[in-house]
Design a protein around this nucleic acid. Structure first.
Length: 606
RNA sequence: UGGGGAUUGGUGUAACGGUAGCACGACUGACUCUGACUCAGUUAGUCUAGGUUCAAAUCCUAGAUCCCCAGCCA
């Protein structure tokens, strides 16, 4: 895939990083923790160490792509490292399948940067929050001993009731119990003595804080559930706020980048690190040893796309309710769905860089994503001619049985791709919509009496149509001009300029074309903001989001195409081979159509 | 009603007291063996009201609108 980073304009996070570098903020960064496979995260004298911290409770989507590209791009730009870290602190929702898919998707996407979390110059490594459960537990014990945490025996509903309001402080009758008592109960919690929900460990911060996150947040809850990584080793699990800062700390993350909704959590993030560091010193001479790494949390606005649903909860519903065929359905905004559809890592990277990074909530037009895909595929895709909805063309004056071989330019955007041969004969297929018996004004494709060019082949002129008893057109009759072989008209006998033709059509030879299935996708939702009207995105589903064409006539060159390969079907769009393909039965996904001024004109003209 | 954020053309994003720029879209046109690509041009913006200043998108004051927060989710 592509290598060095193109020039991307600086954004507010660049400015923060540059200021940090200038002030030497992270200059003393030592070696970070050791990730899976012995790869060390955290660089000595680091300028940046970033990470992408997904929870393995679903498949990654294009919103995550923005975060991955941001974090990887920063590591690359400033010569730092990038980690993939599973924020796997909730066994009730997390599964190995999701872990596997996330690893696959992150590797795939970051290939656009020429490396990944486990390869290349910016590989920081693979980490699991759950590998740190022991460390976090030790910190929790430390906080209890420091009088900064306590075991609270209020049930969840009761905590909720006692949460208070902006004006009324929260309460807990267990807040001032002796540390020794909390220590004993915490140990019992961990050993499985107590049932789920019977008690929690809470931080002792400020029950009256206007920021509810600081009203003695829960650090540990009891969950007797098997964890995908730690199995049954634990029956207490750390909450996000308690765990996240230590994950960053262990990996010596410099800039802990998250989305806007965590802005309210930053005081808590800092409080927990500071609480552990209370009584610790740089040289370890304090009563609690050495200070731990304190990352800097920075929040940015997550990606929002119109005509799209982007929340793991809803995507999960779409999969489990079978609205789509699975997480990798090509209509899904998941990375696996987009990969299957034919979107490339380079296109997603370009898209993420084009839309910028800010703190402003904004909605990106889905067309921007499609444009990025077109731009990338245009450069790299070999061309082919395939007919999606075939209409037979009979060349009346073509010598019976003759087959011609013509030169076809494989990719006009890439002369190095060269040419290949295409076979032409007396019976062809063209696109049904390229013929009109009674054409409107601006239609300059084939119609009775009209002459067009067949790409790289001959000029043909329509002499008539054949119809069935119901009046449907079954074939178009034409004559060809042998002098236009290759697709260019010769100059006139007296030096007149060659005659021109307004339209060039794609075609396939009926005898040589191969049969195939083509799947066309439209957006999954008809409404710009699904669910905005009724509160249910189901009400805005597009019933026509999938069209399967089983009678396509494909370019013979596609017979050996392999899953994942992308072609431009000339005048139609970019098409990628689906894994459902079988030998002799190729299946193509339309990744994205070409821009189509004629369709726009026709729609406008009515 | 408490706290935390945000607000620049249709959309996204720059400008950090000194010419409001770029990209996408839309619209014109050129080119074209893909009605694609490419190229040229047009279009259109500082949330409001005051103030400071020679000069304000930028600083100050007041207001408006939108987003996030009262899970033992992340």
């Amino acid at each position: 895939m592509s290598g060095p980073a193109p020039a991307v304009p600086d954004h507010f996070i660049d400015e923060i990083i540059k200021a940090d570098i200038a002030s030497g903020r992270w200059g003393l960064g030592g070696q970070g923790g050791l990730g899976r496979g012995g790869v060390a995260g955290g660089v000595a004298g680091a300028s940046v160490q970033t990470r992408f911290p997904p929870e393995p409770n679903g498949y990654l989507h294009v919103g995550h792509a923005k975060s991955i590209c941001l974090n990887y791009g920063l590591a690359q730009k400033y010569g730092g490292k990038f980690n993939l870290r599973f924020d796997d602190t909730n066994p009730e929702k997390e599964e190995q399948e999701y872990v596997d898919s996330i690893i696959r998707d992150v590797k795939w996407l970051t290939s656009a940067f020429g490396g990944s979390f486990d390869s290349g110059n910016h590989a920081g490594g693979l980490f699991y929050a759950s590998d740190l459960f022991g460390l976090m537990y030790d910190y929790a014990v430390e906080l209890v001993k420091k009088g900064l945490a306590y075991v609270c025996e209020l049930p969840a509903e009761e905590v909720s009731k006692r949460r208070g309001t902006p004006a009324i402080p929260a309460t807990s009758p267990f807040r001032d119990r002796p540390a020794a008592e909390s220590l004993k109960l915490l140990d019992e919690m961990r050993r499985g003595v107590h049932p789920d929900g019977s008690m929690t460990l809470r931080a002792k911060i400020d029950l009256a804080s206007p920021n509810f996150n600081l009203r003695d947040p829960v650090m540990y809850r009891i969950v007797h559930e098997k964890h995908h990584n730690t199995g049954t080793d634990w029956c207490i699990y750390p909450m996000y706020d308690w765990a996240h800062g230590f994950e960053d700390s262990f990996e010596k993350v410099t800039h802990s980048i998250c989305t806007l909704e965590f802005e309210n959590h930053r005081p808590l993030y800092d409080w927990f690190i500071n609480a552990v560091n209370q009584g610790r010193t740089e040289d370890g001479s304090g009563p609690w040893g050495k200070t731990i790494w304190h990352s800097r949390q920075i929040e940015f606005a997550k990606l929002q796309l119109n005509y799209t649903v982007l929340s793991k909860r809803n995507l999960l519903r779409m999969v489990s309710d079978k609205v789509v065929r699975g997480w990798d359905d090509p209509r899904m905004p998941t990375l696996s769905g987009m990969r299957r559809r034919g979107y490339t890592p380079a296109a997603l990277r370009a898209f993420c860089e084009e839309i910028g990074v800010t703190k402003t909530d904004s909605v990106i037009d889905i067309g921007r994503l499609e444009n990025a895909v077109r731009a990338d595929l245009n450069k790299r895709s070999p061309r082919a001619m395939s007919v999606l909805r075939p209409l037979k063309v009979v060349i009346e004056n073509w010598p019976a049985g003759k087959v011609d071989e013509l030169d076809f330019v494989i990719n006009p955007e890439d002369p190095a791709a060269g040419t290949r041969k295409v076979k032409f004969s007396g019976t062809l297929y063209i696109e049904r919509e390229d013929f009109m018996e009674e054409p409107p004004k601006k239609f300059f494709r084939l119609s009775p009496g009209q002459e067009v060019r067949l790409r790289w082949a001959y000029f043909i002129r329509c002499t008539g149509v054949e119809k069935d008893s119901a009046g449907n057109i079954t074939a178009v009759r034409c004559t060809y001009d042998p002098a236009t072989r290759g697709g260019d008209a010769p100059a006139g006998p007296n030096g007149e300029p060659p005659r021109k033709v307004k339209a060039t059509l794609h075609w396939v030879s009926a005898e040589h074309a191969i049969a195939g299935e083509v799947r066309l996708f439209d957006r999954l939702f008809k409404a710009e903001f699904p669910g905005e009207r009724t509160g249910k995105w189901e009400d805005d589903l597009n019933p026509d989001s999938l069209t399967v064409l089983t009678d396509a006539k494909l370019d013979p060159v596609l017979a050996t195409a392999k899953p994942g390969e992308a072609y431009q079907f000339e005048r139609l769009g970019y098409f990628t081979v689906d894994p459902d393909s079988a030998p002799g039965k190729p299946v193509f996904n339309r990744t994205v159509s070409l821009k189509d001024d004629w369709a726009k004109l026709a729609a406008k003209g009515g």
